Simulated assay, not measured.
Amino acid sequence: MNPYKAIGVMSGTSLDGIDLAYIHFEKTTHWEFKILAAETIPYTTTFEQQLREAINYTPQKLQQFDTVYTKLLAKTIQTFIKKHTITEIDAVCSHGHTILHEPEKGITYQIGNQEILAELIQQKVVCDFRVQDVKLGGQGAPLVPIGDELLFSEYDYCLNLGGFANISYHKDGKRIAYDICPVNIVLNKYAKQVGFDYDDKGKLAKSGDYLLSLGAELDNLAYYKQLPPKSLGLEWVQKEIIPRLEAFPRKKIDVLRTFTEHVARQLARNFKIRSKVLVTGGGAYNDYLLERIVYYKELNLVKPTKELIEYKEALIFGFLGVLRLREEVNCLKTVTGASKDHCSGKIYNYHIVK
C-alpha cells in the first residue's frame, strides 16, 4: 500500500489555537503513523473573541467571517509548511472550526472549509467532514473514533479531554463513541475570571471548596441519562451549564472546584473498573482532574507522549483525509447514529499558479 504524507489541521472548542500535524501514514498488516512535525498557532485575543461571538452572527455576517477565517487558516498552513520545509504533501486535511452544532435540527457548520483554501495554499484539501453525516441522520460527531479503532486498538478506551470530553471503545464488534461532558470550554472560562488562561495542573480547582447543591444540580442534567449516540455543542453549554454556574454567587474558584469534581464523576461513570485508558487533549495535563477520576474508579490512565496528547485530533483528521482519498469508510454509524457507515469529506483540488 502507498505511504501517505498529510497535514492534519484542527481547531477545537477550547479556542487555544490551530493545531497542525505533519504525519506519515502507512498500511502494512495494519495502519501505522509517525508525527514528523507538529505545533499549535494561538489565536490573537481579537480573533479568539470573534470566534466566541460568531455563534450569534447573522447568516450573512457568518458567511463573511467564514471567508476571513479560511484566509487565516491558509496563511497559518503556509507558514507551517515553510517553517518545517515540507515538500511532500498528499493532502491537507482540515476540520475547520465549529460555530454551530445542532444535529437534531440538521445543523452543523464548520468555518474554514471553503474551496478557496486549496487555491490559497496550492495543495489538495480534504475538509468539511461533518456535514454529510448530519444529512444521513447522524450527529456529525464524534469523528475521531475511526482513528481510535484503526490506530489505537490496544487500549480499552480512548478518552479525549478537550473543550468537551469524549470517549471511544470497542464493544460487541462495534465502535461506540460519544461526548460525555464539557471540560475545558468551562474550566478555561472560570480560570480566566480569576486571572489565568487555564487551570494549570488543576491547582486552582484543588484550592477551592466543593458546592454540594451545585454539584448535585449538574449531575442531574438530562443529557447524562441519554444513551449514545449523542454529542454536545457550545449551544448546550450556554443553555444548560453557564446559567447554573452563574446562579451561584460564590467564589469563582469554588465553581472551578465543583465543576472539576462534576467532570471527574461523569467520566468515571463511563469506564469499567481497572480498564486501560489512553488520555489525550489539554485536560490530560490537569493532574487534579485525573486524580479525582481514579478516586471515583480504579483505572489505568495512560498519558502518552506530549506530541500525542496535544495533536491526536489533528493526527486523526489527517487520517480521516487519507481514508477519504482511498474512498474508505471514515464515519461509523455506530458512533454518530447515521443511517450507514460512509466516506465523508469534500476534496478540493487547485489550479497551478504559474
Rank of each mutant, 00 (worst) to 15 (best):
A191E: 02
D199L: 11
G195R: 11
D197C: 13
C181F: 09
I185Y: 07
D172M: 07
D200K: 14
G173Y: 08
G195M: 14
D199G: 05
Y178M: 02
K174M: 08
K192S: 10
K174A: 10
K171M: 07
Y169G: 00
D200G: 05
N188D: 15
D199I: 12
K203C: 12
D179N: 00
L187E: 04
R175A: 01
A177D: 02
I185D: 05
G195F: 14
K174T: 07
Y190A: 06
R175E: 01
K192N: 15
K189Y: 14
V186A: 11
A191W: 09
Y190D: 08
K189S: 14
S207M: 09
K189W: 12
D197M: 15
K171H: 15
G195V: 08
A177G: 15
Q193V: 08
I180R: 04
C181R: 10
A191V: 06
Y190M: 07
G195T: 12
Y178K: 04
N184K: 03
P182N: 05
D172Y: 04
N184D: 04
G195I: 12
D172H: 07
D179S: 03
K206L: 10
C181A: 12
V186L: 10
K174G: 03
G173W: 08
Y178I: 02
K206P: 04
N188V: 06
L187N: 08
S207R: 06
K192G: 04
K201W: 08
H170Q: 10
D200V: 11
D179V: 01
P182Q: 04
L204N: 09
F196C: 07
F196D: 06
Q193M: 14
D197W: 08
K201Q: 13
K174P: 07
K203D: 15
K203L: 13
D199A: 05
V183Y: 07
V186E: 11
R175I: 01
G202N: 00
H170K: 08
C181Y: 06
D200R: 11
S207Y: 00
